[in-house]
Design a protein around this nucleic acid. Structure first.
Lengths: 140, 140
DNA sequence: TATATTGTTGCAACTAAGATGCAAAAGTAA
DNA sequence: TTACTTTTGCATCTTAGTTGCAACAATATA
């Protein structure tokens, strides 16, 4: 599917109006395999307004288009959600991200079975986030 | 052991000079079970200089006194290292933290066996960080 | 296809987080 | 006690992120 059409489809599905900044931001996520930070996007879309970008990332997150990819760095990064995520429930009770020590990219890994982590005594576990680091496909 | 003595011992072991700000910062870590953010410490030690705190946290981290506790929030938090950590090697290839959804405290969990996470195809895994969330001992 | 409605943008202004350089002060070794 | 070295605390700067608001653009409806 043409990337433009796919962007429009996603925005419509989530009840977000189709606007120029939203289209170009979403396009970035669709065309990169790795999670993107605010800064990454600013560098790729030169004429984007800083504040619009903040707000777009926030509304994308709220509507289940993207999710914050925990990767152990101080800079928040975002990755596309699976289509099964919705406004009301991100299906991310158990999530796996991989940060490459070499290229510093963070990847959202789908479809790997995550073993249950033994709950520490007295704690009630609701969700699990796993951050692996090492070398990614390209760098190893 | 008196807490003062313990602080001095740790600082000496790591080759850090014993100073007033370092003592009071380290004291905070020793007297709280949870990981502390920059802000947490500023609130507890009222007369501390902001920049000194930044620099102290950095040197504590470099010398293996504390480590950054990845907990999925945007605010870096720090927790005491086990004594087996050193300047040259943090023993944190596999680390587990727990963030409570209720009190928002982050705990560094020691002594729980962490199952190996299956490495995604093509990736070379060197370290694993796990962030559990849910309810901590006090809140459940 | 014009219009009303509502959501979104882009700017200004602000707050908070964090880094750097430097002179004065404090720790340590002799 | 002195000499040497590290650390502190301040001023200054940069970057990240928020809020309020007027102008504008997307959609729904007539």
């Amino acid at each position: 599917m043409a990337i433009q059409l796919e962007c429009e489809k996603i925005l419509k599905e989530r009840g977000l109006r189709i606007t120029k900044p939203r289209m170009s931001i979403l396009e970035q996520f669709l065309s990169h395999p790795n999670a993107l930070s605010h800064n990454d996007i600013e560098e790729k879309i030169l004429d984007i307004d800083r504040i619009t970008l903040y707000r777009t990332l926030k509304s994308f997150e709220e509507k289940g288009v993207i999710h914050k990819a925990i990767d152990g760095t101080d800079k928040p990064k975002y990755a596309l959600c699976e289509s099964s995520c919705s406004e009301h429930a991100h299906h991310h009770d158990s999530h796996l991200h991989f940060r490459c020590d070499d290229c510093n990219h963070t990847f959202c890994i789908e479809g790997v079975a995550i073993p249950a982590i033994p709950a520490p005594e007295g704690y009630h576990v609701k969700g699990t986030d796993i951050v692996l680091n090492g070398l990614c496909k390209n760098c190893s």
